[in-house]
Write a protein that binds this DNA or RNA. Structure first.
Lengths: 244, 244
DNA sequence: CGCGTCGTTGAATCGCTTCAATACGCGTGG
DNA sequence: CCACGCGTATTGAAGCGATTCAACGACGCG
């Protein structure tokens, strides 16, 4: 990372409020205690009882919940610039697991440090709260996705959502993005079987909308894909929320 | 309502922390500006741009989102003691609608009043934050419900969740509760067709697990129903979160 | 009384799952 | 170096769960 201004978190927050140098400086201080983890090593598996939060600075992670019957529901994939375990700082220990999908890099911080940073700077606190609230809106949208759309629409919507999220942090655009997920990941996230994910991906490819192959998502026809998925990005829109 | 101690909100928060008289007093003051609304009159339909929140004190309400294609996903049903539009106070205007299912009674408060109350009393603020975080956990559980369970399991889980929520505010128990929802409501919440909801309800009845008829849910065999639905109420458990 | 909402049931259909088999790339160890 | 195993992707075929369309009964209300 060349400078803090280019960190994914800074990029993401910048889309919400223009940050000052002082604020960049605070963000920088939050990134001191860095750690690398690889797939297979759970960052936390039963809920963050210790009061630590992580800022993900590189790699993909998923938060999931296992059911007694062996099913596995992925609640969200987290990408650079996202917080991990933020909620547990504010209050409640989350009851889902968090697992790296790729090699990842995180900055660990104690709850107190974060709260301290917030008290130093109100605007920064608001910006982070905005991010948290956006996360929540994404879960709701995920619910709608699973509840109301069929397999191909779900996939289309999903791929578009991550396109937007990744674009925000500078590692994606309307032509596509690198995506380390397997079809099994998609299946667990979308409540489908892996076999059917495969078929649905093929449909999207054959319709000329989007291609997901070899760890890359390529938007073959972005506008048609948006129309097909009825993708309305307001729920993760940067312009949306008002600073109070 | 005989006294503030018996208000649904007070009952709910009491399960989290024992409230003092002073705290009951603050809660009481929040309930001054009361309003009654009936079904058909949306409380807000496009997002709470004004900074007001409501405490629901009687009746059922649902929060939903409509899709361009005409589908209708119910995100959550809100029951007495729940906040409506709480998130929008903290930050972001919600982009879902809120619609009464029964005649309801709400107390309207301005964002400032709530924040003022919070600053007066830290424990109360924490208790309300706990409630908000519990709401979020319910959305996640809803996601899992839709993503991983079949129709009968979904229904079973749903009916149990509301059993727990209603028990907390004193209008339900392990034998059952009054439930004003139609099968269409259930269908929209669970991502099923109304016809299939009907069939699934019949199955649950014939299995001797639970009966949903004439506006009442009767648990015919609570323990077996819990086992059948794999219902694990920790996500809305009162004992769960820690006061910090 | 007649109409609208809600609940119920049947029959046909379709989307998705499941089971099964094959293929490919990659890393490991013989 | 190649054989083997493992994870991932792909495709077919059979079966089931849920949807859709349709019809009808019950109830409450103007």
């Amino acid at each position: 990372m060349t400078s803090i201004e280019d960190s994914p978190l800074a990029l993401k927050l910048s889309s919400f409020v223009a940050l000052t140098d002082a604020e960049f400086e605070i963000l920088h201080k939050l990134h001191l205690r860095r750690r690398s983890v690889g797939p297979g090593q759970d960052l936390l598996d039963q809920g963050q009882t210790d009061g630590s939060v992580y800022i993900l600075s590189a790699g993909w992670v998923c938060s999931y919940k296992d059911l007694p019957n062996g099913d596995h529901q992925i609640i969200d994939f987290r990408i650079p610039g996202d917080f991990l375990g933020l909620r547990s700082v504010l209050l409640r220990t989350s009851d889902y697991g968090i697992e790296p999908i790729t090699d990842i890099e995180v900055s660990e911080l104690r709850a107190e440090e974060l709260l301290e940073a917030f008290s130093q700077n109100q605007r920064l606190a608001t910006a982070v709260l905005w991010a948290a609230s956006r996360d929540e809106a994404m879960v709701v949208e995920h619910l709608i996705n699973i509840g109301q759309r069929n397999a191909t629409e779900r996939l289309a919507h999903f791929l578009l959502e991550f396109g937007s999220r990744l674009t925000l942090i500078g590692i994606g655009n309307k032509t596509g993005y690198e995506c380390p997920l397997t079809q099994y990941h998609l299946a667990d996230a979308l409540g489908l079987s892996a076999v059917h994910v495969n078929r649905a991906l093929r449909q999207l490819r054959e319709k000329g909308l989007v291609t997901f192959q070899n760890g890359r998502v390529d938007f073959d026809n972005y506008d048609n894909l948006v129309a097909f998925a009825e993708f309305d990005p307001i729920y993760l829109d940067h312009k949306g929320p008002l600073l109070r």
